[in-house]
Amino acid sequence: MPTDIKDITVIGGGPTGMFAAFYAGMRGATARIIDALPQLGGQLAALYPEKYIFDVAGFPKVLAKDLVGSLAEQMRQFDPDVQLGQRVIALEEEDGHFVLVTDTDRHPTRSIVVAAGIGAFSPRRLPQKAAEPWYGRGIHDVVTSPESYRGKRVVIIGGGDSAFDWASQLAGRARRVTLVHRSDRFRAHAATVKEVERAAAGGRAEILTFHELADVVCEGERMCGLVLRDVKQKTTRTVDCDVVLPMLG
């Protein structure tokens, strides 16, 4: 158990948590970070390390993993204590200070900053039972190497920023990108939606609205397509694919 009482303990090791620890050091305060994940960076490191981010001040675009690395380097100027792989489960008071209790330890602190985002998380999986056996064998919810999709037929399921960001980035690498969403209302940034629409107009991508996964088509042990259900017309169609990327949040 750490016996030194920190001035500030930050719950969450994502970008906000790391900057909070850096700023604590700038103000002469000692800091500790606690995060449930095994690495710093939050969702950027766990889900989108190879995705470009376009809305960080001062950067036209920056890879998520590079932003995480820069924030960690900035923070470490002041040598904060970093405790990873620990989930906070309780808060206690003891002798005039707080104690954050995790599933493995106790951390005394004078103050607490909660920068946990959506909290401990894992990617949302496709709800269809047909998809489950193919995770890791054709269905991947994290993109670790965009170049590995070069020349492949990629289906992206989702209508948010991650779905459209990856559709935009992979349209120049993949043989074909098909974006599938069960609505015609997208949660992605309008500029990125327009990029994917331009790729679709140029034949490098396709956007299928009002569709959802119905089944997986395979040849032996290899996934080769998806059966998609039109949620409005109640019909189905088959789309050839080599890789499926569920980007559901």
Rank of each mutant, 00 (worst) to 15 (best):
residue 37 L to S: 07
residue 64 A to W: 01
residue 32 R to G: 14
residue 126 L to S: 11
residue 118 I to M: 11
residue 100 L to N: 06
residue 118 I to P: 02
residue 129 K to W: 03
residue 94 E to A: 14
residue 106 R to L: 00
residue 106 R to G: 09
residue 84 L to T: 10
residue 64 A to F: 05
residue 27 R to D: 10
residue 111 S to T: 13
residue 112 I to C: 02
residue 126 L to Y: 14
residue 45 A to G: 03
residue 42 G to A: 02
residue 83 Q to D: 06
residue 42 G to P: 03
residue 38 P to Q: 02
residue 92 E to S: 10
residue 30 T to K: 03
residue 74 Q to A: 12
residue 32 R to T: 12
residue 74 Q to V: 06
residue 116 A to V: 05
residue 30 T to Y: 06
residue 65 K to Y: 11
residue 31 A to R: 04
residue 31 A to S: 15
residue 120 A to S: 14
residue 42 G to K: 00
residue 109 T to E: 04
residue 22 F to H: 12
residue 103 D to K: 06
residue 138 G to Q: 01
residue 127 P to E: 07
residue 138 G to E: 02
residue 96 G to C: 06
residue 125 R to V: 01
residue 34 I to Y: 09
residue 36 A to L: 00
residue 100 L to I: 15
residue 88 V to C: 03
residue 39 Q to T: 15
residue 57 A to N: 04
residue 115 A to D: 10
residue 95 D to Y: 09
residue 23 Y to F: 14
residue 35 D to S: 10
residue 96 G to I: 08
residue 93 E to H: 15
residue 24 A to Q: 05
residue 124 R to I: 04
residue 54 F to P: 00
residue 92 E to N: 09
residue 44 L to N: 04
residue 53 I to K: 00
residue 59 F to R: 06
residue 87 R to T: 15
residue 50 E to N: 04
residue 124 R to K: 15
residue 97 H to Q: 12
residue 24 A to P: 05
residue 110 R to P: 07
residue 131 A to E: 03
residue 123 P to Y: 13
residue 133 P to L: 01
residue 117 G to Y: 10
residue 95 D to S: 15
residue 24 A to C: 04
residue 68 V to Q: 02
residue 125 R to Y: 09
residue 91 L to S: 05
residue 114 V to T: 12
residue 136 G to L: 07
residue 114 V to N: 08
residue 106 R to W: 10
residue 41 G to M: 00
residue 68 V to H: 04
residue 52 Y to A: 01
residue 97 H to E: 06
residue 135 Y to V: 06
residue 108 P to T: 13
residue 75 M to T: 08
residue 104 T to F: 09
residue 67 L to F: 15
residue 67 L to I: 11
residue 110 R to A: 12
residue 123 P to G: 12
